[in-house]
Simulated assay, not measured.
Amino acid sequence: MKLSSLLAGSVLLAGCAEQQAPQQALAPPALPVQALHTGTETTYQDYPASIEGVVNVEIRPQVAGVLDRILVDEGAAVRKGQPLFKINDAPFREQLNNTVAAQQAAAGAVTSAQVEVDRYAPLVQNKVVSEVQLKTAQAALTVAQANLQRAKAAVNSARINLGYTTITAPVSGYLGRLQTKQGSLVGPTDAQALTQLSDVHEVHTYFALGEDDFITFRNQYAGRTLQEKLTHLPPVALVLSDQSTYPTRGKVDVVAGQFDRTTGSVTLRATFPNADGLLRSGNTGTIRLALPHPNVLLVPAAATVELQDKVFVYAVGDSNRVRRRAITIQGKNGANYLVSEGVKNGERIVLQGVDHLQEGQIIQPTAPAPASVSLTTGKAAAASTL
């Protein structure tokens, strides 16, 4: 009797355990859930850029001669009109002296011809000599006057050439490398310039947008024309080669008139102030262009799952039952997607564990961990990327 009672009790306990096990397996999983809220987000797109001074000029001699003196050093800051190079001016001074002498001779010839005209005029009036002689004298005077004008022009040209022996800075700025050494023979036809001069009180940075990016750029900002859109474009940042950000923001002010057929891109120009001369022509960097996205939802990429080229989230509905929703992504900000369609403002989504969820499954919602990304507006997070 005792043995049979013990066996019966064991069978009863085993049956209860088998009934409890399925109930424990069907317990809804506890997963973090949070509501979405619509806001305006800002993302940033980076584009490689080249930097040039407002004015970049090649310094070349305008007359041929021996380079006597170099009056500046490489990389020096120079003012407009400051002497930079000196070409031996002895030949040009001699040329000026010769032209001055020729001018004086031409002036003497004019005086002599005028004397002849004055001498023949009364004689012709009194019919002492024929009128032909007077006209011949007047023609000689005209030729002498023309020769005098030619001589004066030669003097002015010689003075200009003598002035060209001192090469001055056409603008204020910074010099590049000095390509020619003292004592070299230089001339206007030289393949290589003496140096380059850059006016960098402001700098132009050039970057290119592909066709898709340009269409996005054109549709993103208010205005009917490109010029109107540029006025609504927020200031842009310049990231230097060491990944530091230039302290002053710039303004996009020019869009090229046509696309490059080779690259399929259009060039834009942003201008940055450079009062301290930190930027130089030839520098490279990255233009960081801000793109606002109004009325979007910020969804962590970890809360999504990709199936058949679509991205889904699990929305929590009535009775804590989850429904899979395909979402439309406008962009990405860090580890978060910017979603414009598929979920609504105020709707709750599952933040973690979505890989193991099934359509219609019931969950037990929990509050997200403190380290979870806030799904309200992400302006501060977006701005921190700068």
Rank of each mutant, 00 (worst) to 15 (best):
Q220H: 01
A30W: 03
Q330H: 04
T165Y: 06
N283T: 04
G173S: 11
S384Y: 03
I70P: 12
A106W: 07
Q179Y: 09
A302L: 11
T38Q: 00
D318R: 10
Q192D: 11
Y337F: 15
P28D: 03
T231H: 08
Q361Y: 03
Q258T: 14
Q145N: 08
L36M: 00
L238G: 11
L31S: 10
A153G: 02
G210R: 07
V57Y: 05
K310H: 15
A25F: 01
A256M: 07
L375H: 02
G15F: 04
F312A: 11
A335T: 14
L351M: 10
D213M: 08
R321S: 13
S130L: 00
H293L: 07
V11I: 13
V63C: 03
L338K: 04
A146G: 10
Q34P: 00
H293K: 10
A237L: 14
G360V: 03
G277P: 11
A191I: 07
G334K: 04
A139Q: 13
D118N: 15
T225V: 09
H37D: 02
E228T: 00
R218S: 00
H356W: 08
S112C: 02
G346V: 00
G53E: 07
E94Y: 09
N295Q: 15
P294I: 01
E41W: 03
Q114T: 06
F217Y: 05
Q361G: 04
T284A: 11
L307G: 02
A191K: 14
Q352P: 01
R325D: 01
N345F: 02
K379G: 00
A21I: 12
T225I: 05
F207I: 03
L3S: 07
I70Y: 05
Q145F: 01
A237M: 14
K80A: 14
Y120A: 10
L7I: 13
D355Y: 13
L240P: 06
M1W: 08
V110E: 14
V203T: 03
S184E: 14
A367G: 06
I349F: 09
V100Y: 08
P48K: 03
V171Y: 13
P273Q: 12
L84N: 02
R249F: 01
D46A: 14
T165M: 11
D309V: 02
A109I: 04
A369W: 01
G360W: 01
A17L: 12
V155N: 00
A21N: 09
L194K: 12
Q138K: 11
A64E: 13
L197I: 00
V311M: 05
R269T: 15
Q227G: 05
T195V: 13
L238D: 06
L357D: 02
V255G: 05
